Amino acid sequence: SHFELRVGTITLHFDNISEELAEELEKLAKNGVHADEIRRWWEEWLK
């Protein structure tokens, strides 16, 4: 499923992401983690 995450002024787009993972990314964003860090985390997870 597709997921969009708003982090400050940036909107990150994720394809084929589980609800659980989407929730984890939302938690990171709410805790003030920068969009670049979240994207890096996601790319690492995909490997």
Rank of each mutant, 00 (worst) to 15 (best):
H13R: 11
L5P: 00
D15G: 09
S1I: 15
S1A: 08
L12F: 09
A35E: 07
A35K: 02
E19Y: 12
G8F: 07
I38P: 01
V7S: 02
S18G: 07
R40D: 05
V7K: 00
W41T: 12
G8H: 02
L28E: 01
F14A: 01
H2Q: 06
A35M: 05
V33A: 14
L25S: 01
I17M: 04
K30R: 11
K47L: 12
E44C: 10
L25K: 00
W42N: 02
S18L: 03
L25P: 00
R39M: 15
S18A: 05
W42M: 10
L25F: 06
G8T: 04
F3T: 01
A22F: 14
E19F: 12
D36S: 09
I17N: 01
E24N: 08
E44V: 13
I10Q: 08
H13M: 09
E4D: 03
E37I: 08
T9D: 15
A35L: 08
A22D: 01
T11M: 06
L25E: 00
F14C: 03
L12M: 09
V7C: 05
S1W: 07
L5Q: 01
G32F: 08
R40I: 08
E4G: 00
L5D: 01
R6T: 14
S1G: 14
L12T: 00
R6I: 14
N31S: 12
D15S: 12
F3V: 03
G8W: 07
E43D: 11
G32C: 05
L5N: 00
L28D: 01
E23C: 05
L21Q: 09
F14N: 00
S18Y: 03
E43F: 15
H13T: 11
E19A: 13
A29C: 04
G8A: 02
A35V: 13
R40N: 08
E44I: 13
D36H: 10
E4N: 02
K27G: 09
A22W: 09
V7D: 02
S18Q: 04
L28R: 04
E23N: 12
S18D: 07
K30V: 09
D36N: 10
G32D: 05
K27V: 09
S1E: 08
E37Q: 11
E20F: 08
T11G: 01
A35I: 10
L28I: 05
S18M: 03
H2T: 04
L46K: 14
K30I: 08
T9F: 12
N31M: 13
R40V: 06
T9E: 14
E43R: 15
T11V: 15
G8N: 03
R40M: 11
L12N: 00
I38T: 02
A29Q: 03
H34Y: 06
L21N: 05
K27F: 09
L25A: 04
W41C: 05
R6N: 10
E26C: 09
V33G: 07
E44F: 14
T9S: 14
E43S: 14
I17Y: 02
W41K: 12
E44P: 00
E20H: 09
K47E: 08
W45C: 06
K47D: 05
I17D: 01
R39V: 15
I10P: 00
A22Y: 10
N31C: 08
R40S: 09
W45I: 06
G32N: 08
H13P: 01
E37N: 09
S18I: 03
E24H: 11
I10S: 05
L21I: 12
N31V: 08
A22K: 15
H2N: 05
K47W: 12
S18E: 03
G8L: 05
W41L: 11
G8Y: 05
L12I: 05
G32S: 05
T9Y: 06
E19R: 12
G8K: 02
I17K: 00
V7F: 05
R39D: 03
G8Q: 02
E23Y: 14
R6G: 03
T9V: 08
L12A: 00
W41Y: 14
E4L: 06
R40H: 09
F3S: 00
